[in-house]
Simulated assay, not measured.
Amino acid sequence: MRPNSRFAVVQPIGLDQVAAAAGDDPDVLRLENLDTDIAPPEVAVQATAQALMERQGNSWLPLTGLPVLREAVAAELLTRTGLGYDPDRQIVITSGGTSAVMPVLLSVTEPEDPVFLTDPTYAGLLQRVRLAGAHPSLVPLRVERGYWRLDREELVEVDRAAALLLMSPSMPSGMVFDQDDWETIAEVCARTGAYLIYDAAMERIVFDGHPRINPCRVDGLAERTIVIGSMSKEYRMIGWRIGWIAGPADIMERIRLATIYNTTVASGFAQLGAAAALRDPSGAGVREAVAEYQARHDVVIEQLAGLPVVPAAGGWSCLLDAEALSLTAQELSDRLLARGRVAATPMTAWGGAVATRHVRLVFSNEPIARLSSLRARVEAALG
């Protein structure tokens, strides 16, 4: 096999290895999983089934997404951002939110350009920066007053950047950016000329007492922000594989071309289901799903009281500090599975020094009744 320098630094995501080791044992508590057991919106199921039965959407075209979905995304973004995106010029539909990352990176970076992410961050973001040929630089998260916070003092030292690639809430930590964070990010983008690539996949999955701020509403960021959205997390429509990119019209010309050549187009019948969910006047169950995620999160934190777990301000997961338990993240992951029957992913590929000392506990795919066994399982693993 010929060498390829891109893959010298790209790391395996880790969760698939844990899932394979866990197998299909029903006793294993599946906290490595990126899925959710909360049902997708019924309106989306019905619209997708109707499209299939009526043979709608079985097409390659339009290459940038069906007009009805681009218009629904524009309406959704108007509510979130306050901006009136042109559905034809400023929105492109993608095959899931994560598939949007590569065409954006290819459009805004040159080889070896620095792209800043948090430590920890979603491996799907970090490793795509490497595959795109850019250089990932990590700004650490710190635990302050019991929650993850951005190290703004380190961020303000950034003097060269092509882009900042950020999530709020962030995977895997559940950290949520506040107003001061976004203002610091705006200052860095203005000073360096960087784009903000904002992964908004979990934007509304925020728990009580924590802010939900869209960066496009922060002075100076709207004209620099490229938004990546998805139906997978908030709307629980993982299998539909529908995402989108929205941003300033000039850079979207480039992103549109990169997207067409990257993934062609998402399935048309799935797009029709997504449009139905976005346009559902009842809210497609988002509020109810968020309440359930918070309830599950709270059970996890209660179960692990006294252990080095950091609560999440939102999202689907929280982190347990393996090094504080005198273990490596891989050792803790192995013990959790072998002794406690808990599948949990070590954060080896999810950042730098902060990420690699933690394992991730995903609470989106296990009900409260099963999560209530977590304490006994962890004690068995550590005993």
Rank of each mutant, 00 (worst) to 15 (best):
residue 3 P to E: 11
residue 4 N to T: 09
residue 10 V to A: 08
residue 13 I to V: 12
residue 17 Q to L: 04
residue 18 V to G: 03
residue 19 A to V: 13
residue 26 P to C: 08
residue 26 P to E: 06
residue 36 T to N: 03
residue 38 I to H: 11
residue 38 I to R: 15
residue 56 Q to W: 03
residue 62 P to E: 13
residue 70 R to W: 13
residue 72 A to K: 00
residue 75 A to Y: 11
residue 78 L to R: 12
residue 105 L to W: 01
residue 117 L to G: 06
residue 118 T to A: 07
residue 119 D to F: 10
residue 122 Y to V: 03
residue 132 A to W: 00
residue 135 H to S: 12
residue 142 R to W: 00
residue 148 W to L: 02
residue 150 L to N: 03
residue 151 D to F: 07
residue 154 E to M: 14
residue 155 L to A: 15
residue 175 M to H: 12
residue 182 W to H: 04
residue 198 Y to M: 05
residue 205 I to F: 09
residue 214 N to P: 01
residue 216 C to H: 08
residue 221 L to Y: 02
residue 225 T to Y: 02
residue 227 V to F: 03
residue 268 G to I: 11
residue 270 A to S: 11
residue 280 D to C: 04
residue 284 A to P: 04
residue 284 A to C: 05
residue 287 R to D: 15
residue 291 A to F: 13
residue 297 H to N: 05
residue 307 L to C: 06
residue 310 V to N: 02
residue 310 V to F: 01
residue 315 G to R: 09
residue 319 L to M: 15
residue 324 A to S: 11
residue 330 Q to V: 10
residue 331 E to Y: 02
residue 332 L to T: 14
residue 341 R to L: 15
residue 341 R to D: 13
residue 346 P to Q: 12
residue 347 M to Y: 07
residue 355 A to I: 14
residue 357 R to A: 12
residue 371 L to Q: 10
residue 381 A to H: 07
